[in-house]
Each structure stands twice: as structure tokens, then as C-alpha cells.
């Protein structure tokens, strides 16, 4: 039987030291060992992006990485995005733009979007769509996700009225 390995990983600001089987995937380590169930598994072929987390600040698919490969690295999951009780601007924007329905793709979508905005602070709509090509959503048809990411790039500030600003904008623009 394969011998286990000892790893030290910083996840969402906390340090963890664990013995893991080499075949344990990072996403399984996060979900099953650390209880970080905010990160989800949607496929087995590196297509859907539901498991996207940040490794040292850049987006990776945690289903396509072994936990041992994260040894000595810093991982950020959706659970580490809000700071001091304040939502990350992308979390707020996804809410404000109705960019989620069932919410299953959402953690990965937000993590991929955050990485995208780190690499390109002012993306066009096309660049946002291409930047999210590694994340599948079956509910939203993507339009509101794109709008949410764009709104963060544009520095839109939302009110806390609980009503969508600019609502009744039933007709979009082409």
C-alpha cells in the first residue's frame, strides 16, 4: 500500500498539517479532511470548474491536483473570500446581479472570476466570457455572471436596499 505523506498547507489563512494518502485529491482534502465543503465537485474530467480554488493566488482546479502537491503552498477557497465579515466584491456582485440560481457552480465561478480580474483588471465582455471558459453553469445562461464580473471591474457600488438597482431593465442591449 502506498505510504502516506505529511503535508503543511495554509488554507483560508489557517495552517494545517496532515498525513495524506498520495492519491487524495486536493478537493477531497479540502472537503473531507478540512470540512471546507464550500468547494464542490461537478465532474471528473477537469471540465466544469466547480472545484476552482486559488493556489498561491491563481485559479486552479482542485480536482486536478493532488493534496501532496499543495504541500508548502497557500490555498484560498470560497470560504476565505469574505474578509472581516464583509463579502468579497465578487460575492456581492453575484448576489446583486442574480448571477446564481442553484449555486453549485458559484464558488468555482467566483474563484475563477477573482483570478481573471487579478490578471486583467478591465476585461471586455468577450474577455470575461473567455476567462470563464473553464467553468460551466447550467442555470444562468451566463449573462448575469458576465454582468457581475463586469460590474466589479467597473467599480460599481451597490446599495443595500435588497432590490436590484436599475431593475426593470428588462430589455438588454446587444
Amino acid at each position: 500500500m502506498a505510504s502516506s505523506k505529511n503535508i503543511t498547507v495554509e488554507v483560508d489563512g489557517a495552517n494545517y498539517n496532515d498525513d495524506v494518502e498520495p492519491r487524495l485529491l486536493l478537493v477531497q482534502y479540502l472537503r473531507e479532511r478540512l470540512g471546507k465543503t464550500g468547494t464542490l465537485i461537478g465532474c471528473d474530467t477537469t471540465n466544469c470548474g466547480a472545484c476552482t480554488v486559488h493556489l498561491d493566488g491563481v485559479s486552479v482546479k482542485s480536482c486536478t491536483m493532488l493534496a501532496v502537491q499543495a504541500d508548502g503552498h497557500k490555498v484560498t477557497t470560497i470560504e476565505g473570500m469574505a474578509q472581516d465579515g464583509k463579502l468579497h466584491p465578487l460575492q456581492e456582485a453575484f448576489h446583486q446581479c442574480h448571477a446564481l440560481q442553484c449555486g453549485f457552480c458559484t464558488p468555482g465561478m467566483i474563484m475563477a472570476s477573482a483570478s481573471l480580474l487579478t490578471e486583467n483588471q478591465h476585461p471586455t465582455e468577450k474577455e470575461i466570457r473567455e476567462g470563464l471558459e473553464g467553468n460551466l453553469c447550467r442555470c444562468t445562461g451566463y449573462q448575469n455572471i458576465v454582468a457581475a464580473v463586469k460590474s466589479v471591474a467597473d467599480g460599481v457600488e451597490y446599495d443595500d436596499s435588497g432590490v436590484q438597482s436599475g431593475a426593470d431593465k428588462t430589455a438588454g442591449v446587444s
Binding site: I41, T77, I78, E79, A82, L87, Q91, H95, P107, D168
Partner: peptide
């Protein structure tokens, strides 16, 4: 008729989800 934002979102955008596999 009001464009209310969703009550369901808070836990889903922060990773406090309750999917069965969790």
C-alpha cells in the same frame, strides 16, 4: 413585481452550502 434580490444567495456565495454530498 419588485426586483427583489434573492434570500437564497448568502449561503451559496460564501460556501456555506448544504448539498447532499457535503
Amino acid at each position: 413585481g419588485k426586483a427583489r434580490l434573492r434570500k437564497e444567495d448568502a449561503h451559496l456565495i460564501t460556501g456555506r452550502s448544504r448539498f447532499t454530498d457535503n
